[in-house]
Design a protein around this nucleic acid. Sequence first.
DNA 1: ATGTGATTTGTACTATCGTACAAAAGATCA
DNA 2: TGATCTTTTGTACGATAGTACAAATCACAT
Lengths: 236, 236
Amino acid sequence: MVRKPTSKETARKPNMREAILAAAEELFATNGFNAVSVRDIAQAAGANPGSVTYHFKTKDGLLLEIYRRHCGPMNLRRSELLAAAKRVRDLQDRLEAIVRAYVVPAFTSGSDLAGGGARFTRLRAVMSAEGNEVARRIIAQTFDDTSHAFIDAIHESLPHIPRTEIVWRSHFLLGALYYSLVTPERVSRLSRGEADGSDAASAIEQLVQATVAAFQAPALDQTAPARRRTVASSKT
Amino acid sequence: MVRKPTSKETARKPNMREAILAAAEELFATNGFNAVSVRDIAQAAGANPGSVTYHFKTKDGLLLEIYRRHCGPMNLRRSELLAAAKRVRDLQDRLEAIVRAYVVPAFTSGSDLAGGGARFTRLRAVMSAEGNEVARRIIAQTFDDTSHAFIDAIHESLPHIPRTEIVWRSHFLLGALYYSLVTPERVSRLSRGEADGSDAASAIEQLVQATVAAFQAPALDQTAPARRRTVASSKT
DNA sequence: ATGTGATTTGTACTATCGTACAAAAGATCA
DNA sequence: TGATCTTTTGTACGATAGTACAAATCACAT
């Protein structure tokens, strides 16, 4: 079952540390934190279990390092794109540019490895779902600034919508984004093969289009004079 | 650490089976499948670990039973609401009714226990994120019919949008729905306390409002003659 | 080439996991 | 009450978890 590292993998650039990080990222992102053992990671990286302990001390430390590695570049890229988006004159175009600035880095790059951005975003989605403590701490102190910046920017281009609603809709955006990365095959299945859920370009365009429209929806709180409820809410 | 079952809990209605199911549901939904041990569940239910084995044979069997318990009522409720929604004349109102028929049962009821619907939906979100095999099988064969029914209904009220895009947007809806149940506190935090992410009624209204607008967005594939990209897509 | 610090390996320890199973306790009805 | 079936308890077993650590190996400056 264990695949011995071939010379091609270890001899040229014996950067075990990177290999372990990449393997852990992939495994955590697809199976969750607790379902993956240190031994699984070591095996996938062609390394020895002890090597993981040496480089990252603990399993939590390994997860922490994955976040450290990605958060910087992704947030940098996002703020660059956000700054550019804010310079767009037309308000409708600006909104789309802002949303795109939020979405695109989540799907692409961040680091050097191919598919790294999508994989890390999927990892965040899974850790968030599992209520992982390590992730929760990092998220709160690393991503909230970025989130606020985007919320503010969107709010500026949609001044008539209360900030609270912008928050809700941003939250929905992140949820949709996460879910698209978690189960892309569901899109393929439900569309009977007509759409490819794994195609990042499609996902981005569809998500941007849908989200921009969602943001532009009339406000619920103040603006609309209470649309009647078509269907009862609940009984519990 | 282990709390001995008081007479109030076990004596009156000694339905350990139910208690175990409820405890497992709660723990799985908040911590994921692998992070929770059978002993954790037993302890939370005031039962003996062996009792879990007796009633459900395996840990997977326990998860399976949770799904069995909820899927029927929830899908029944959804199809009832969907049937009612389809009778709405006005196309705009009908779309909203359909979306509501999809969203409301996910947040409320399903079973008798308070908050049961939301908890089960959150459980599904977490299992989906973890790529849980048991859940994946059940979902595909239980929820795909319902999903198709909703997609078709939405498609009928938005005939000018290609089905593929309806699928994408439905997928986003489910992602947003899931995420709202997974990390409601994020909404409260980002809105600086102005919104309560845990309030089901708010979540439903916000989600319905935003989603209806998303569905009504112009189609991307055929209709719009290729909007220019405001921001580059990637470099990887 | 050799010594030195960094890395990798191999292995072992303890804790906890899911599950099995026999014994105890409880319920049901003749 | 006693027999029978259901449920609960207590405990044990093998597997695997995370982590520690000494020995082996490697990279490289001198």
